[in-house]
Write a protein that binds this DNA or RNA. Structure first.
Length: 272
DNA sequence: ACATTGACCTGGGAGC
DNA sequence: TGCTCCCAGGTCAATG
């Protein structure tokens, strides 16, 4: 479900309701996510106050005085703030109750997500410390990307979806950014000119910023924390548009598979 | 070091 | 209606 814009939209949606709130109860109905939810999570959180909610890559970081709750939404995860008397559905795996009568509810049909506790410095956590720069930061620029791509044969689409290179770029926005930059998704990362890399970096930043402004992309089941869909789907140029005319030149959009993910591109506008 | 593939899990839609 | 098959926004672990 979520790439960076959807995770950030979720962060902004829940923040005002849970910042500075004290946890009064935690109910875990199913521990079995990608990694087991720690057994002592309730013990760890009860009576403790959420200082703020940050984001690193696609992880939401709920900061407490004595540690951080890391939440990843996987493919189908969702976080909402509800009144505490709302009835529970099949895939509502975790509820975190607050003194203000609200509940933060984690829902995840496929259970690829995660809730993990880290008492140490979050930057040194094994799931975080190997990650590349944030795509919207100044550290992510064409010099950096060219340097990383040097000598690498891997396809550029796989390359920009690799979190060790840059975080937050998932399947939708990788396809969109490559279309915007006029680069074929199968082109070897190491063979892209500096000029094209500059276009690609700009495209990644632009597509993520525009998607964020639209509240993310709702294809099937993504909902903002207030239950409303994101509106970026109507602005997608290639993703999910196989066989339909390219919006720039009219050629049919091609769809192929790379690393077991669907890639969409215009064979006329995007060059190898 | 790098590249590729399998694995995790449920639900929805297409086709028969 | 119901069965089978394929697909889905992620990413780690194992393998060559």
């Amino acid at each position: 479900m979520p790439e960076l814009p959807e995770v950030e939209t979720t962060r902004r949606g829940i923040l005002p309701y849970i910042e500075n709130q004290t946890v009064s109860k935690v109910v875990i109905r199913n521990h079995s996510l990608r990694w087991p939810i720690p057994d002592d999570l309730e013990q760890q959180l009860c009576g403790q106050k959420i200082i703020t909610v940050k984001r690193r890559a696609k992880y939401l970081l709920l900061e407490f005085a004595h540690g951080t709750l890391m939440i990843h939404l996987g493919m189908s995860g969702r976080l909402r703030v509800l009144d505490s008397d709302k009835n529970v559905d099949k895939h509502d795996h975790v509820d975190m109750y607050f003194d203000n009568g609200k509940v933060l509810r984690y829902t995840d049909p496929r259970r690829f997500g995660a809730l993990l506790w880290s008492a140490e410095d979050i930057q040194s956590h094994p799931l975080i410390n190997h990650l590349g720069p944030e795509p919207l930061s100044d550290a992510f620029d064409s010099d950096y990307l060219c340097h990383k791509a040097k000598g690498r044969q891997t396809a550029i689409k796989t390359f920009i979806m690799n979190g060790e290179i840059v975080v937050g770029v998932g399947n939708i926005y990788a396809n969109e950014a490559l279309f915007m930059a006029g680069i074929h998704p199968q082109k070897a990362a190491g063979k892209i000119s500096h000029k094209k890399m500059t276009l690609l970096v700009a495209a990644i930043k632009q597509v993520l910023e525009k998607a964020l402004a639209a509240g993310g992309t709702t294809l099937r089941d993504f909902r903002k924390s207030d239950g409303k869909p994101g509106y970026f789907a109507q602005e997608l140029s290639v993703y999910g548009r196989g066989d339909q005319p390219c919006l720039a030149c009219g050629s049919p959009i091609k769809s192929i598979r790379q690393a077991q993910r669907a890639s969409y591109f215009c064979p006329h506008c995007q060059h190898k």
